[in-house]
Design a protein around this nucleic acid. Structure first.
Lengths: 228, 228
DNA sequence: TAGTGTGAAACTTTTCACAGCT
DNA sequence: AGCTGTGAAAAGTTTCACACTA
């Protein structure tokens, strides 16, 4: 037997969350099956790519019919290792940290923000409403704690993901603290390359980078290709 | 002559903002030159890749020495089409919109948030401090306006970039309004594929997607490869 | 000598096109 | 008839390795 998770290419992995999102939308609308062509349309990619990508998860389609929406969504979840319970700590409660804490999107998509830490004593004790996949619960709150308590907080709440929302100069220290606390992966909003052990996967989201890339494509679409 | 902007590969374009950031850091520290090896180290990529990438901008290095930091930064800016004056409007003043509006990072990096619109009448008139590359100015404020005034706002403030921070269901309408208002490019935080004309480049940042991808790599680093 | 710029090789990703299943 | 799954071709990207030059 082919063994599903033998080796999923990186390019495919990066698209799986997109398919997952589209499948979730289809399921919400009551669709039970979907073809690669339709899925590709909704995801904004080529249909052959969808089929190739999905083939790395296993042979879960039915020829002449398509894919079962619910079942395929489960396979994507399994492949990505989504257990529905990956708790998040936000490090840094400045503008961005507060923004992310109030933004319910993490919780809605299975990554509840379970703790927040900051180095500034004035911020300790601030409360933020806690929201998870079931929406916002009026009673539950997250309280900002001191960054020195990070290891305890991570242990006590069984937190696996750290989000760095500190200023640039504090990002590496935040990463070190997260690693020391035994975190399993890191998402950073600081525009620097982090130095962390191989065993701790991390990603960087730089919002200004996204705008700069857009700037290039916008400039290019204006001057449609040079003459040779 | 080779003509600098003949055709920069997409993969290179996506890394240019990273190099730009590293160069800005070096300049701030007073470094005047940098080798591909050092630049690669700081950017977390391979040195040959740095050289190849930079060669698409032109031959701006000096053999035996390296690259001039300031000059190279200018070339990157020119290639990306960064004029230092690309004004932004945020559509949607919910949790995420407020977060982005208060987060000074856009302005600091040359994309000042110059206007904010929302469909909710209760939010119209709310003020947010305006921050640009020179920091926050106590006097200048951005006032939330009604989304129906979007076209005027875009015209009057010479805004070129739209940021969609609405709920998912309102994202396409926001995109339509931005296109109608003559916006030049769109950054969306809604997890849907937008339908906009070819001439309007757009990108999507889905924060949950980033966490889901991390989930995969974390799961993989645990179970280091299957036996055959 | 130290470090760029670049052909060519290696590898990855995308796309095509169609056999084969339901 | 319709749609998947996949080899094989094409396109794109990364890495190597070294001629070249300041």
């Amino acid at each position: 037997m082919p063994g599903p998770s033998a080796a999923v290419p990186d390019a495919t992995v990066e698209r799986l969350p997109l398919y997952h999102q589209v499948l979730a939308d289809l399921a919400r609308e009551g669709e039970t099956t979907v073809s690669s062509v339709r899925l590709a349309e909704l995801a904004g990619v080529n249909a052959a790519k969808v089929r190739k990508d999905l083939s790395f998860l296993g042979s879960y389609g039915t020829r002449g019919v398509g894919y079962d929406v619910e079942f395929l969504m489960l396979q994507v979840q399994r492949t990505l290792g989504l257990t529905g319970d990956a708790r998040v700590v936000i490090v840094g409660f400045g503008n961005l940290g507060q923004a992310l804490a109030n933004y319910g999107g993490f919780g809605e998509r299975g990554f509840p923000v379970t703790a927040i830490v900051d180095a500034d004593p004035d911020k300790i004790g601030t409360q933020v409403p806690r929201s998870d996949a079931n929406g916002e619960s009026a009673t539950e709150r997250v309280v900002v704690e001191h960054v020195e308590r990070l290891a305890e907080v991570v242990r006590d709440h069984k937190i696996t993901v750290g989000v760095i929302a500190t200023p640039q100069h504090a990002a590496q220290a935040a990463a070190d603290a997260l690693v020391a606390a035994g975190i399993q992966s890191i998402l950073s909003f600081a525009p620097v390359v982090l130095d962390v052990p191989e065993s701790v996967p991390w990603r960087k989201v730089d919002l200004a980078t996204e705008l700069q890339i857009l700037s290039f494509y916008q400039a290019r679409s204006g001057s449609l290709q040079h003459p040779a």
